[in-house]
């Protein structure tokens, strides 16, 4: 098989605060192939966004720092590039779409100005060619009257329209990887579906790999080829959508799925919740990070940190007891 497009190895990003060092991302490794759609899920503060920011090298010193790791993209280690080279990668090879489209556009410039700026930064074209590319990009994201809209300011747009503009901007330079950091969180549900479908379609046409960060399991279920679940700065389970959704191996994934409303399963009285709160990232618990919240924790879980390994079911999982537990057959909520 060909080399992966993105190869992250043992990435560690720490933030120094007054209380101590926050290990926001602590030893994350994964690969994304060209054209693959990868979902990253987890609770708030589990390091999803920091992972994305680290790949783009948008973590700002002195507050945060990538301590160790390797981010290989298209054969180059991004962490070793100069800032000038990195600026070419950002927006050119890797594009990023942000959570809140209401604030991600600069209010003092027109939509057209901002699209053209991005295109001129990364492509060797004249201003009028850049304009044409921008209009095509707006057409592609199904914004009506693209030529006219170029002269509009962001405040004249609704949230969904702005997110379309952000997608147009992200895809205008034909990136190989699109990182979408909770792109639909700020939108209402009907718009969410439209935006996700649009992104899916455009990424597929261009064979762009997508790294979709979200805490919405419903979004990844319909959208992603593979899913990785993060907890407290590391990956606890990774597999295909089917594997994760129908046969979770890690108790945390199992808990997350239980907390989700589903139409295809029998109605429950109450939704399950994962008890407790995410651990401190300054002094993480010894042993399994999830141990203190886990219904199945045993002595070994309190002593040794489980590593990500191949489970019998196919996916990778970081749990000492994944092989002996048959989570599929345990009714959610039965243990609590």
């Amino acid at each position: 098989m060909a080399d992966p497009l993105l190869n992250v190895e043992d990435l560690r990003t720490y933030f120094s605060t007054e209380e101590g060092v926050v290990k926001a991302v602590d030893g994350v490794s994964f690969k994304v192939d060209a054209g693959e759609r990868r979902g990253v899920v987890g609770e708030s503060g589990c390091g999803k966004s920091v992972t994305a920011m680290s790949i783009m090298r948008l973590i700002e010193p002195p507050a945060g720092e990538i301590v160790t790791g390797k981010v290989e993209f298209d054969g180059r280690d991004l962490l070793k590039l100069t800032e000038a080279d990195m600026q070419q990668v950002r927006g050119g090879d890797i594009a990023m779409i942000f959570q809140d489209p209401m604030t991600a556009l600069n209010p003092v410039y027109t939509i057209g100005d901002q699209l053209i700026e991005t295109i001129l930064l990364h492509q060797d074209v004249s201003k009028s060619e850049a304009r044409d590319i921008a209009i095509t990009a707006l057409d592609d994201v199904q914004i009506p009257h693209a030529g006219k809209v170029m002269e509009d300011y962001p405040h004249q747009f609704s949230g969904g329209m702005r997110q379309r503009v952000m997608i147009a901007m992200g895809l205008s330079c034909e990136p190989k990887l699109l990182i979408a950091d909770e792109p639909t969180t700020a939108l209402d549900v009907t718009t969410q579906a439209q935006i996700m479908n649009l992104m899916l379609e455009l990424a597929e046409q261009r064979n762009t790999a997508v790294l979709l960060i979200t805490h919405d399991l419903g979004v990844v279920a319909g959208f992603c080829d593979s899913i990785q679940v993060m907890y407290a700065g590391s990956i606890v389970e990774r597999g295909t959508g089917d594997e994760i959704f129908h046969n979770p191996q890690h108790p945390y994934t199992w808990g997350l799925l239980g907390s989700m409303t589903r139409l295809d399963e029998s109605q429950q009285e109450r939704l399950n919740s994962v008890r407790g709160a995410p651990p401190s990232l300054i002094n993480p618990p010894t042993g399994c990070r999830f141990g203190p919240r886990c219904d199945f924790a045993q002595d070994i879980c309190r002593e040794a940190l489980p590593i990500l390994h191949q489970s019998q079911e196919g996916q990778k999982v970081a749990c000492h007891r994944s092989d002996e537990l048959d989570l599929k057959s345990i009714a959610i909520g039965a243990t609590s």
């Binding site: 948008l58 600026q87 950002r90 594009a95 990023m96 991600a104 600069n106 700026e117 991005t118």
Partner: peptide, 25 residues
């Protein structure tokens, strides 16, 4: 602000961010 983050993610340099994105605001 996110638009500054977005500008950086789109590959803008510090000088460009200061003069073109922040100063006009």
């Amino acid at each position: 602000k996110e638009f500054v983050e977005a500008a950086r993610a789109a590959g803008a340099s510090d000088r460009r961010i200061i003069f073109r994105h922040i100063l006009p605001n």
